[in-house]
Design a binder for these strands. Structure first.
Lengths: 235, 235
DNA sequence: CGCATTATTGAACCGTTTCAATAAATGTGG
DNA sequence: CCACATTTATTGAAACGGTTCAATAATGCG
């Protein structure tokens, strides 16, 4: 069941059994990548989409001055480049953060799904738009929230997204990023990210140690992080 | 021809005449709004999409600390909330920056289009994904570019988008925003935005005066602004 | 014309970066 | 499986980019 996590995180619109089966049947094959491997290089024409089955993936863009901006962090059940179906190429790159396993959906198979069912179309379209809503929330975070708040916000988001697919244990979950990655995602330097992590820990909100997040006080973290989950569209 | 600018900015995939006619026929009515009027309020259920015909529109989100983050600036030919079709509501608000005229597309009409033509579906889907690509470029700007570079980048983007629909005169164009708006879009304070505008002017790159942009040296502006138009998908 | 909004500039301040140095953790080859 | 090399984490101190506060001028709207 390649599409189990995807369907678990996207319950609207509701698919018929036949539609869910068509989606599942659109997988051409699975592939594994090593940590740090680049999966999609920006501007290269694409002919298939990638559904993340196991592990973590990042979307990112590097600037000429040598800064990396992480644009999205993907968890199992996320299509990492479904937008390549209408766009045909991506303007950013995609890389594995950990060893990962993915399922591939050829573009013609996706076109087949859109020809077959407007509901399936809406579901796939919707999933790319939830990614976009997360993109916009990151704009708000980076543009209008202080460093510590931004970091807290990111932990709230990752907690809910991982909780939804059963990848949390109580208030603890694995988030296999380095502090450098957290810095690249929040638009901070690694040094400042480190200081903000210390502050959040000392404030009793959340602890990040070697890729493991422990939420110490969810309500306080959520409030401090100015976190409202509406943008995740968990309908 | 409500959809003229839209079709002018989205040439891929190519529609048949019948498909273009169906799209045009999906307009239920047109509406006008005054400057500063809120067109879509966040989290309110929506049943139609809005195509901007004349004027400028912003998408934005306000934070509890009273900061406004502008998420997108829309020009004629842009759907400002096409993502409301799969999402059913938006996580941000939409407001008129100037007096505007828009055309409305009821959600059922859009569903009709997706049932009728996978090419039309792909075109509409694609247009929401180009918005998302712009969102991501803004993440890079705000997260990884300095204030002056960010501002230069924004002028490059708006120049190309407006040039495409014939709303520029040589290297000059109307961009009816206040410096406060520019600041809210770039994640800066109005004071600093003002200083960056002065710097860009004194460097001979670009001039912004009362809502009118004059590019003084396109190549230099583009280079200074770290601008690569690939993310606009002008195929 | 008058009032509110926007633009401009200076000066002090502060959040974040930069540079630098050390410690801890992780990965790799023998 | 240990030893070494590399990457990551941590902390301090100085510097800087951007913010805040404040005051005035210019612009635009009703």
């Amino acid at each position: 069941m390649y599409t189990r996590f995807f369907l678990q995180t996207h319950r609207v619109p509701k698919l018929s059994e036949a539609e869910a089966a068509s989606l599942e049947a659109s997988v051409s094959r699975t592939v594994e990548y090593r940590a740090k491997q680049v999966i999609v290089r920006q501007q290269v024409p694409l002919t298939q989409c990638t559904l993340l089955l196991e592990g973590f993936i990042e979307r990112f863009k590097d600037t000429p001055e040598g800064r990396r901006q992480i644009l999205a962090i993907h968890v199992p059940g996320d299509f990492v480049d479904l937008h390549s179906y209408p766009l045909k190429r991506l303007e950013h790159s995609v890389a594995a953060l950990t060893p990962v396993k993915v399922a591939l959906f050829p573009h013609p198979a996706i076109r087949g799904l859109t020809e077959q069912s407007p509901t399936l179309t809406e579901l796939l379209w919707r999933s790319t738009l939830i990614d976009a809503a997360i993109n916009r929330e990151w704009i708000v975070s980076i543009g209008a929230r202080s460093a510590a708040v931004r970091m807290a916000h990111l932990f709230c988001e990752m907690y809910l997204r991982l909780e939804r697919i059963g990848l949390t244990e109580g208030l603890r979950f694995s988030l296999p990023l380095t502090q450098i990655d957290l810095a690249d995602a929040t638009g901070l330097t690694a040094v400042h990210a480190n200081r903000m992590l210390r502050q959040l820990r000392e404030q009793g909100l959340v602890e990040f140690r070697q890729g493991v997040v422990t939420i110490l006080d969810w309500d306080a973290l959520r409030s401090f992080g100015d976190f409202d989950p509406g943008y995740l569209f968990f309908d």
